[in-house]
Each structure stands twice: as structure tokens, then as C-alpha cells.
Design a protein around this nucleic acid. Structure first.
Lengths: 343, 343
DNA sequence: TCGAGTTCTGGGAGCGCTCCCAGAACTCGA
DNA sequence: TCGAGTTCTGGGAGCGCTCCCAGAACTCGA
């Protein structure tokens, strides 16, 4: 009997607002006001309620709040899943940490969804159906129609990484252009004058912007910016691209590679072809992922702060939900060159 | 005016169950039965309701369902965050993909939470407060008290990775012991007879189990199993461990490293010390992460299927929520040796 | 001291579903 | 043909909150 009661109590989802109200000697309206941090509650009532909440370990029922307040108290983090899953991996954990950090203390749940192109219809109707108040989208290809569709459906959205097509959707991105520019300037400052690049995919803004920065950097130095090969986010494609570049220009003496993981493949080829790094060919990567410091030789690279990206996206979205004005439509986060052995 | 209406309509979260019922010519009870796949609905009523649902793109209000049904229709994925964030990274994306795959089609939301030891109290009261029906926990240290606390609080829980202390909490893990065993056997089969290991942290079952398998493998071959160094999940610690091992046994001819990322550091030291891999020293890693195929030389390693881990955890949890019996308390997923150049 | 303004409070409707109940409509064997 | 069992249906209470409203309790200057 006693045992039963104990189990019942454990499984039963705790006290209600009514009980808090009773013990604090106020109405449940007042308890609600305290929970939601509203003004117009006397100091006495507020502290009485807070005491009882702490004592009972009361945690308001999320479903009831959402239903009564007709807002979801939740945002979605939508992660695109394309063929190559590579892209998401290094990003995801960092972004997640940032999002979570920015969300703590708010009464806001984080819903996680993966999106595949064939699920777009379901996703749009789910997300715009009032289940969430807004969405953060990451790992998109630049031309993904999802952000625009959600935006048009009236859902507040912030995209991680500049979308290619629709400038109307707010986004947060690393300043890829300046990153590429810094990489090129660094190679130039080392006295290199036959500088190539392995660019990222053309269907992502990150790839284009880094390439653009590199071009600008070579232009500043009056160097030809024609040694361009393309790779996706795999070492294999990096190896192919490096091979192509060496065939076209055996005397190249510097390469800016649009991602550390691509650089790994490039380094292998350089090594196999007998080029010393950095003596013969200086290499600069991008991301400052774990791979960079453990590459042979350790990779000089452009660092982007992925956790900060997550924080900033969340801050921007919550700002919009709170109706703040003066929010920047989009933001670029600074990158920085991390010097190691490869350049 | 027209503009206003349009915006209003867009932001308003779609039709209610009442409207579906009216258009389908049935009561909302019947609509509810169809939504929840209950029996005792005539074929005629069912298809009428389904037609209307499809036509209106009706999506039931999650908060209302949870409140009325007094179940949360949500599970939590709790990711532990410790000092070194490295651990979570390769895991997270894969596990997530598995969890999501297993969840599609069910009316079950995935809530994401990070946990730090100092947040445990809040987390326990939140999770056991009826906001979720169960929790998946990953990236835990072996002695983390969180799973046991949630389990005791009556919340269905499945842990990814065997917990060290409490055997009572269901878990899913890769078969790390057999993985370590296979690695050792492979090294033995190559004729190596002075075989070391760089083990993972002692406070995680994965580390201990892989070490145990390696010991067993050497025991089978009557080889001494005393060359053990320890590292955490960073290349730097792998480099230190490899240095230590080479100092102790300059003539070692094989190493099993408990994680690819640790092996990266070990490879650097071997190279720096003039050991050829695999001719002088054969190296076997663990994980078959992205790092393995791009290491120099490409790493022979024990593959674990992280996505399958996520799927299996979710399947186990949903099974328990559905009250199925005959569920295995815990599961071990097979690993397999992937042969590349390093051994 | 008074009254207008401000601060604080409780009551009760309602958010959109599910679940329970009672009864109607079928089935099918004797 | 009848009745017991099964299948199907609708009505209405209730899940635990928020939000609106009306009114009570304070403030403070003239």
C-alpha cells in the first residue's frame, strides 16, 4: 500500500498551479503572473509564490501553457540532410551548443527536425501550423527553397549560412569573404606569387564568398586569379582538385582550400607528388576544425566560430519573436587567421 | 484591408478538429479516433475523415493533444556536455539521424537538451515532470548519475553507451569488447608480437571494454598485455601516449588505439620517430570516422554504426512506452574491422 | 481630505484536443 | 426471427494553464 502510493506520487507529474496558489495564499492568476515575470505583482506575493515553487519543485505544464497562451513556447532547429552527410557533422555540435546556451533560462523548448527535400511539404505545414514560434535552419544548400517557403508562410526564420537566392530571409553567417581575403593576403605576404584555390561547391554561398575573397586578395597583389578547382566537402574531392591544379600549374607555390576537410585530401596529394609543405607549397585551410591541428603538417587556417553562429541565430530569432525592432536583417560574424605550420 | 486578412490567415494556425468533423460529417470523437489510429471506426467514416484532413492539410494541435491525453508526445535527447566537447561531435550527427529515422511517422516530438552536471537537478525535475515520456541519453561519462536518477524518478530511459555503475538502466552500445578483440587478433594475424594499446579514458565503459577485448586477444595468442597507455579523445593525448609507449618499448610492432582521433596523434609521433606504418608498427583504430580514411596512411579501424545506435535506442524506448514486453534490457551492436593501409 | 491615477488581485471563460460513457447500429448463430 | 455480442458513434467533461475583465487597494498632488 505504502509502496503503491510512493510509486504513484513518483510517476504523477508533480503539483499544479492551483496547489502553488493555495500554499502561497494567492490566486492562480497571481502565480501565473509570477511565472511569466509580469509586472504588477506585489513584492510580498511574488516572494511567497517563488518560495512555494522552489519548495514543491513546481514546473508548469508546458502543453497547458502553450494551449492557453496560444503560443508554442518552442522553436525548431531544422537540419538539412543531403546526400553527403559530411557537411553537418562538424557544424552541428557547435551550433547546438550555441543555440542551447542562448536558450537557457527562457521557457522555450528546442525541437529538432531533419529535413529532406521530399519532406518539405510536411515540414512546412507542420512548422507553420502553430507548433513552433520560429525556426532556425542550418546545413542548407544555397538554393534550398525551404527558408523562403517558411518565411512566406509567416513563420519567423533565421538561416545559418547565407542563402543564395532569397535575400529577404534573415541569416547569420561567418564572414567568408573576408576569411578568403585574409587567407589570400597571408599567402601573398609569404612571398608566394603562383597561388591557387580549391573552392567549395558553387551552390553554397560559403563556397562562393570564400572564392570571392581569395580573388580580391590576389587582385590587390596584381596576381592572376585563374587557378581554381572545385571540391565538395570530402578529402577525396580535395585530392582530385589538387591533382588537377598541379597538372595545370606544376610550379604553384600556394593554395587556399575552402575547408579543412578538403585540405586533408590536398595535403596527401602534395605529399605524394613530392611537394614539401610549406616550403614548396603553402596551404591555408578554412574552419579551424579538429582536423586542422592534427593534419601533417598542422594546418594554417581561417577560424570560424560555429558556437557563436548558433548563439547569434538564436538571439536574432528570439528578438524577432519578442517584437524587438532595430534588429539587423542579417549578420556576418568575424573570422580570424590561425597560423600553424602549413603556411 | 485585404492585406490584413491575408496576413491574419497566414499566421493563424490552420483548421481545428471541429472543422474537420463538420466537413467529414462526423463528430470530433470520430476524427480523433482516426487521427490516433484506433479501431472501431467504420471504413466509410475513416476515409471521409482522411480525405478532409488531406484537403485541409490539418495537423492536430500538439499542445492540446498532450494536455488532453495527459501524455507528452515527446521524448528528449539529452546530450552530456563535459569539458572536452570532442566526444560528442562525431557521435551526435549520426545518432541524431538514427533517432530521427526511427521517429518518423509517429506523433512524437524530439526535444533536445544539453546537460551539464550543475544542471542535473533542473533537468531531473523537468524531465520527470511530465514534459516528456522518456529520454535518450548520450555522451555520458560512465559514472554519470543522471540515468539512474531519471530511472528512479520513474522516467523510461535508454542510455547510449554502457553506463559503468548501474546495470539496471537499459542501454544500447556497440560491442566494444569484440571490437577490441578483433583488433588484437588482426594484429596477431599479421605476425606482430609486441603489441601495445592506447586505451580510452578509464571512466567510460567504451574505453574499458575495448581494452578488455585487446587483453583477451593478446591472451589468446599468449602475448604479454602490459603495454598500455591512456588517452582521452584528443590527438594531443594520443601523441603523448604514443611517446610514452615508444619510450617504454622501442621495439613494439603493433598498436591498437581506442579511437581514430587518438590514433591521429599516435601516427604523428610514429612518423616523427621514424617508424614506418605499417612496416615497422601496425596501427588499428576504432570508430571508422571520417578521420580514418584520410589519415596518413589510411587507418585500419574497427567500425561502429552510430546511426544504428540511434535507431536502436529509439526503438527500445518507444517499445517500452508502448508497453511491449520481451524487450531486451540492453543491446550490443556488432562492430566490424575495416582494413586499410595502416595494419 | 479627496479624487484621479496607478498598482495589484481574483474569478471565470476558453485554448483544442482526448477520454469516458451511454446508446445506436450492426453481426450472426440458434 | 430474436437476442446476445460486437462494432461504431456522438456528447460532454476535463486536461492545466493564460488572458480578460472588473474591482479592490494603494499612491500622491492639490
Amino acid at each position: 500500500m505504502t509502496g503503491m502510493t510512493e510509486i504513484d506520487r513518483q510517476r504523477r507529474p508533480g503539483p499544479r498551479i492551483e496547489e502553488v496558489a493555495r500554499l502561497a495564499g494567492v490566486s492562480k492568476s497571481t502565480v501565473s503572473r509570477v511565472i511569466n515575470g509580469e509586472q504588477y505583482v506585489s513584492a510580498k506575493a511574488r516572494s511567497a509564490v517563488q518560495d512555494v515553487i522552489a519548495r514543491l519543485r513546481y514546473s508548469p505544464n508546458h502543453a497547458a501553457r502553450s494551449l492557453a497562451g496560444s503560443r508554442a513556447n518552442a522553436i525548431a532547429l531544422v537540419v538539412s540532410e543531403h546526400g553527403s552527410h559530411v557537411l553537418g557533422d562538424p557544424f552541428l555540435a557547435g551550433v547546438l551548443r550555441g543555440v542551447h546556451a542562448e536558450l537557457t533560462g527562457r521557457h522555450m523548448q528546442l525541437l529538432l527536425m531533419l529535413s529532406r527535400p521530399e519532406d518539405h511539404d510536411d515540414l512546412v505545414s507542420y512548422l507553420s501550423g502553430g507548433h513552433v514560434e520560429g525556426a532556425l535552419l542550418i546545413s542548407l544548400h544555397g538554393d534550398d527553397p525551404l527558408p523562403a517557403r517558411l518565411h512566406e508562410a509567416g513563420l519567423p526564420v533565421v538561416v545559418g549560412g547565407r542563402p543564395l537566392s532569397n535575400a529577404t530571409v534573415p541569416f547569420v553567417d561567418s564572414d567568408n569573404f573576408t576569411g578568403g581575403l585574409d587567407a589570400a593576403r597571408h599567402l601573398v605576404s609569404l612571398g608566394r606569387n603562383k597561388i591557387a584555390t580549391i573552392a567549395g561547391p558553387k551552390d553554397m554561398a560559403a563556397g562562393l564568398d570564400r572564392l570571392g575573397g581569395w580573388r580580391r586578395g590576389l587582385g590587390e597583389a596584381k596576381l592572376a586569379a585563374n587557378l581554381v578547382a572545385e571540391a565538395d566537402f570530402t578529402p577525396e574531392s580535395g585530392a582530385r582538385a589538387m591533382t588537377e591544379l598541379l597538372d595545370r600549374a606544376p610550379d604553384l607555390d600556394g593554395v587556399f582550400v575552402a575547408a579543412d576537410i578538403i585540405a586533408l585530401g590536398a595535403l596527401q596529394v602534395l605529399h605524394a607528388r613530392g611537394r614539401r609543405v610549406p616550403q614548396d607549397v603553402a596551404v591555408v585551410g578554412f574552419d579551424d576544425s579538429l582536423l586542422a591541428s592534427t593534419a601533417t603538417p598542422p594546418l594554417t587556417t581561417v577560424r570560424q566560430d560555429v558556437e557563436q553562429l548558433g548563439r547569434t541565430m538564436t538571439w536574432r530569432l528570439l528578438g524577432e519573436l519578442a517584437g524587438e525592432d532595430g534588429l539587423p536583417p542579417s549578420l556576418l560574424l568575424p573570422t580570424s587567421l590561425v597560423r600553424r605550420a602549413s603556411a
